[in-house]
Amino acid sequence: MLRAGDVDTLPLRDLGRRIAYGPDSLQFGELRLPTAPDEPRVPIAIVLHGGCWISSFATVRNTAPLADALTRQGIATWNVEYRRSDSPGGGWPGTFQDAAAAADYVRVLARQFPIDTTRIVLLGHSAGGQLALWLAGRHRLAATSPLAGGMPLPVRGVLSLGGVTDLEEFAKRQPNGCGRGVSALLGAPPDSVPSRVREASPILRVPLGVRTAHIAGEDDRIAPAPVQQAYRRAAETAGDSTAVIVSVPGGHFEVIAPHTNAGQTVVGLALAAVGRSPRRSPPGSSPR
């Protein structure tokens, strides 16, 4: 099975255009635009990498191959960097504010580039899956929440790639692994800050009102099937009837490696979310 470092070494055809969405050195994204687009304005995928909300675990390089593959299929991509819990200003509420600011910045990008802001899909891997699901529902936050603000754009759907959907469950299941990042993200252990858990944990933010798909490897220990199914039950009970679970070969990182069957499945689902058909080249084809 692939490791994070394996994905970081995958080659890229397009390195992307680095654009700041805020003043901090970590508040930037990589914008990739399709070459020879076949429509006046192209859909866009907002991509959020994982890494346990800890800066040493992953960067935008980890999701760059997936963003690159999506762009070759006619979708603009905004691969977002953000402050993590161990970065100055990150954690609570800075990490969430960065994700929100980056998503809102798509409006600015659309003034300069041919981007269709009515066709947005969110993709998040691992901890980024938690942020992607949170972004889709942040318009329902109370005005008094420190996470509220901005002008959320409507999205067509969310793809959670081995995503963390229940912060409390994850912190208990992996207390010595990636789950230890939850307390740092929230600023305290989950059981001591229930209001923050309610505002941040995807399973408690339903209904989203948009289609969600949860794609994870058959051997993914971050997002095992029972956890995905628990999210779907919660979403359906709340009124979301469109939570889809897709099991693919591999572990936690195959879903962001576009040359794998899992990665090609993700690309296909992203295309479907924004109403595009695959181009002639294989959806996940990548130079080797």
Rank of each mutant, 00 (worst) to 15 (best):
L66H: 05
T71L: 10
P65L: 13
L123P: 01
R84M: 13
S126E: 08
V80I: 15
W78D: 10
G74V: 01
P65K: 05
P88H: 14
W134P: 04
G74K: 03
R61L: 14
A58E: 14
G74W: 05
L131F: 07
D68R: 09
P114V: 12
H125R: 02
N62K: 14
A64E: 09
L70Q: 09
G89N: 03
Q130L: 12
L66Y: 02
A127G: 14
Q73P: 02
G129M: 09
R138S: 10
A67N: 02
A67C: 08
L66G: 05
H125D: 06
F113M: 01
A64K: 03
I120Q: 06
T63P: 08
Y82V: 00
V108Q: 13
D68L: 10
F113T: 03
R138H: 09
P65C: 14
S85A: 15
G137M: 11
R111K: 14
G74Q: 06
E81P: 00
Y82L: 07
G94A: 06
A110V: 07
D86L: 12
G129L: 11
V121K: 00
W134Y: 12
W92V: 02
D104T: 04
D86V: 10
G94T: 06
L70W: 07
L109Q: 05
T95N: 03
A100Y: 02
P88Y: 13
P114S: 13
F113P: 02
L109D: 03
P88M: 13
D68S: 06
A76G: 06
A64R: 09
P88D: 13
L70M: 14
G124Q: 08
A64G: 09
A102L: 04
L131R: 01
L133Q: 13
A103Q: 07
L135S: 06
G128K: 03
G94Q: 08
R72D: 11
D116L: 10
R138G: 07
T59V: 01
L131M: 15
G89Y: 04
A67S: 15
Q73I: 09
H125V: 09
A127S: 15
L109W: 01
T118L: 01
W92D: 12
N62M: 11
A132E: 08
T59G: 15
G89A: 07
A99L: 13
T71A: 13
I120N: 06
R119Q: 10
A58K: 00
S87C: 14
G137S: 15
A110S: 15
A58T: 05
D98P: 02
I120H: 04
R111M: 11
A58R: 00
L123N: 08
W92C: 05
G137Q: 02
V108N: 01
R83H: 09
W78E: 04
A58S: 14
A99D: 00
T117P: 08
T59P: 04
T117K: 08
G128M: 06
L122N: 04
A102R: 05
V121I: 13
G91N: 04
A136H: 02
F96M: 12
D86S: 11
Q73T: 09
T63F: 02
T77R: 03
N62V: 12
P65M: 12
A76D: 04
G129F: 09
L131G: 06
A99M: 15
